[in-house]
Amino acid sequence: MAERLEVRKTYKLYMGGQFVRSESGRSYAAEGFNVPRASRKDLRDSVRAARAAFPGWSARTAMNRGQILYRIAEMLEGRRAQFLSLLGGGRPAGRQVDAAIATWVWYAGLTDKVAQLAGTVNPVAGPYFNFTIPEPTGVVGMVAPEEPPLLGLVARLAPALCGGNAVVALASEPLPLAALTLAEVLATGDLPPGVVNLLSGRRAELLPWLASHMDVNALDAGACTDPELAAVEEAAAGNLKRVVRQREVQPSPQAVTALMEFKTVWHPIGV
């Protein structure tokens, strides 16, 4: 019988719901594969896609967002074996994939509870009904830690989506395959195109453009080194971006509200 030819995968960027090569045509070697090396134009286009996707995604009901996050968990469960081999197999890889799936499920259940947990009715000395509710910040830039490549990204991505934000994320530079494969999970998980955009490439090249981009409203920079963080904070000051510095992220309501804005309403009563 004839020898079967292997169909090898070309890893792609995930932008605006599409799997594309870098506009620059560049790639770099990581984990034995050539992966795309995103340019600042790819970053710009991703932010544009995220901005376009944001109104629709944030306007979905919290319950619908929860359904989609749960479906992402289902899709990830179905690809458990693929992720195990990508992450090197063995018990640590198993623990990482299981924790990533559990994270999606955990935040799927939280979407319609954030407003109750974080919202307040405030006592004020005047004829007003005064209340505070959390609202999504907008387009969130995100830096995934180098390790663990899957859980590190999911732990930051899931709370951002739970709150109704659109995301442009930079995958782990030395270990980008898990993130680029996660894009396939997101695409089949019914997430609207553009809500998550995943870029692989040189962090040093992309991060300054992400940090100074006027159309990015918040930046999860907890995975940055200290010198990087200082530069990010300076660049982010241009449009007063919310910068999140949390190093370790555990599933929690605080991880969601860290990327939300609080709106307080003074509603006149009795007049």
């Binding site: 710009r44 932010v47 901005r51 453009w209 100074s212 981009h213 006027m214 159309d215 660049a235 241009g238 449009n239």
Partner: peptide, 10 residues
């Protein structure tokens, strides 16, 4: 002029 990408909001 500024070297950073701009936003519609401004």
């Amino acid at each position: 002029r500024s070297g950073s990408y701009q936003s519609d909001d401004y």
